[in-house]
Amino acid sequence: MQAFTDLAVLARRKAAFDQNNDWFGSAETYLAELKTEVDELAEAIDLGRHCHTEDELGDVFWDLLNLAVALEAESSVRLDSLLERACRKYRERIGGIESGRRWADIKQEQKRRLAEEQAAFDSGGS
C-alpha cells in the first residue's frame, strides 16, 4: 500500500524534527499519545460519528507508527521487521482457523515459539 509507505516516510521526517523539540522525551511520548487517541476513538465510535471515527483511527495509526519509528532509534525494534512479524503471525492464525485449528491453540504455539526466540536473543543469539 503506497499510503502506508507515504505515512512511514512522514513519520521518519517527523522523528528527525522531534529530536530537536523539548516536548519529546522518548518513545514513551508516543505511547502516552496513543492512549489518549484510543480514548478519543472510542468516544467517536460511541457517538456514531463516521468522519470523526476515521479521523481518530488515523490518529491512532499515526501515533502507533511514530512509536515504532521512535523505538527504532531507541532499541532493536525495526518497522520492517515488526510488519513482517505481524503478517507472518496473522497469516498463520487465519490460515489455521480456515483449516479447522483453534485460534487459542495457534496463539499458544506462537507464544511458545516467541518465548524461545526471546530466550535465544537474550543469550546472544539472533
Rank of each mutant, 00 (worst) to 15 (best):
K14V: 11
A68Q: 08
E54Y: 13
A86Y: 14
A15P: 00
R78M: 02
L10E: 12
L64T: 15
L82P: 00
L71V: 01
T29N: 06
E33F: 12
G124D: 04
R93M: 15
Y30C: 04
S126L: 11
C87N: 15
L82D: 02
L47A: 13
S99G: 09
I97C: 07
A15D: 08
E117H: 05
A73V: 04
D46I: 03
G25C: 09
L47G: 04
A11R: 01
K111R: 11
E74I: 01
A86D: 11
S26W: 09
N20G: 14
S75W: 02
F17S: 11
A8S: 00
S26G: 10
K107A: 12
L83T: 13
S81R: 04
Q118W: 04
L65C: 08
A68K: 00
N21G: 02
L57F: 12
L47W: 06
K107C: 06
C87R: 15
L65T: 14
V77Q: 05
K35Y: 07
S123C: 03
G58Y: 06
D22I: 07
C87H: 14
E33N: 15
L82Y: 09
F17L: 12
K111Q: 09
Y30D: 08
L34S: 06
D80K: 02
V38L: 14
V38A: 12
L79N: 01
E33R: 13
R102Y: 02
D6M: 10
D80I: 09
S99I: 05
G96D: 12
A115I: 03
E116Q: 11
L71Q: 05
R78N: 10
F4L: 15
S26R: 13
E72I: 02
R49Q: 09
E117C: 00
E117T: 07
L65P: 00
D46R: 08
S76R: 01
S76M: 05
C51E: 15
L57S: 12
D105C: 03
D122N: 08
G25R: 10
S76W: 00
C51L: 15
L114G: 10
L67Y: 14
W62T: 10
L41D: 07
W23G: 08
G48I: 04
E54Q: 14
D39I: 05
L65R: 05
T29M: 03
R101L: 07
E43F: 06
A70D: 08
D63Q: 13
S26V: 08
Q108W: 01
Y90D: 07
V60R: 00
C87S: 14
A70E: 03
E56R: 09
K35A: 15
G125P: 02
L41Y: 05
T53W: 06
S76L: 08
R13Y: 09
